[in-house]
């Protein structure tokens, strides 16, 4: 184990790393409250919520309201699908079945292939099939290729540590497979399922590399931000960043709070 000096150096490194992680984001959150005549960098020229107001003016920064509701809806669709599909696949992978190795490697491939290529492939496939790309069809599928591998890997880790004795006990008492899943397996894995949901939501809400070539005519929020980075030179960009960050933290916070309250209630019983 490292000596006292080593520990101190490592502590310094860790603190510097945390500052490095948070510093820039905190800076733009501060700068998004820039005064009306302020620019992209310090000093602050007064404090205002002017730039947040600008977000909702149509002509100022494109269609912020529509893109944000599109992104939220898409993230909800992706989250729900990811939870159900990875839970089912996780149950399937509890035993080997013909083709299970292939499906596993395919899922890993889906995770590690460069996102731009996946998006390009889906865009071309839809083009060749003469189907219009849309955020709710092609981009939805493109995002699933990104969220499902995370979901499956979490499920595999959970079922690795799962004690089958509970389930066998339920079966011995006469529960049907469905009943033992619903009343025994699901409650035990529920926290991980919520973890998958949170993962799915953030991965989808912030995704742009696979969505870019598959979203069709209507932009999601990250695509709106990506477009703005080249055209917008006012703090409205920071306001959009702050709003988007706040929104995703709010959703995660609400989910964690619900989880915590459910746990407290269960323990109280």
């Amino acid at each position: 184990m490292p000596g006292r000096l080593g520990r101190m150096l490592l502590t310094v490194l860790f603190v510097a790393f945390v500052l490095f992680l948070y510093g820039p984001t905190l800076t733009i959150i501060v700068l998004s409250f820039q005064g009306e005549n302020g620019g992209l960098t310090f000093p602050m020229n007064g404090v205002s919520v002017h730039w947040f107001g600008r977000l909702f003016e149509q002509q100022a920064v494109g269609d912020f309201g529509a893109s944000i509701s599109r992104s939220l809806l898409l993230a909800a669709m992706v989250t729900a699908t990811t939870v159900v599909v990875s839970l089912a696949a996780g149950m399937a992978f509890r035993r080997r079945f013909p083709g299970s190795a292939w499906l596993f490697y395919l899922t890993i491939a889906s995770l590690i292939l460069p996102s731009l290529l996946v998006g390009l492939g889906i865009g071309l496939a839809f083009n060749r099939a003469e189907i219009d790309t849309n955020w709710w069809s092609s981009a939805f599928g493109a995002q699933l290729t990104w969220t499902l591998p995370f979901g499956l890997l979490i499920m595999l880790a959970v079922f690795n540590r799962f004690d089958r004795a509970w389930e066998e006990a339920a079966r011995d008492l006469g529960a049907s497979p469905w009943k033992s899943f619903w009343h025994v397996v699901l409650p035990i894995v529920a926290p991980s399922v919520i973890g998958i949901a949170l993962f799915g939501f953030t991965l989808s809400f912030d995704e742009f590399a696979r969505t870019l070539l598959t979203a069709g005519v209507d932009n999601t929020l990250p695509l709106e931000i990506l477009g703005m980075t080249t055209t917008v030179t006012t703090p409205v960009l920071y306001a959009l960043g702050t709003a988007s960050t706040a929104l995703s933290f709010a959703v995660i916070g609400v989910a964690l709070l619900a989880l915590w309250r459910a746990k407290a209630r269960r323990e109280a019983r």
Binding site: T25, I28, L40, T41, T202, F205, D206, I225, Y238, S244
Partner: peptide, 18 residues
């Protein structure tokens, strides 16, 4: 920080490095 958008984390360097 993984919960924030990569794009925003990139933009965030502008006021630092400009």
């Amino acid at each position: 920080p993984f919960w924030t958008s990569n794009l925003i984390r990139m933009i965030a360097w502008v006021p630092f490095l400009g």
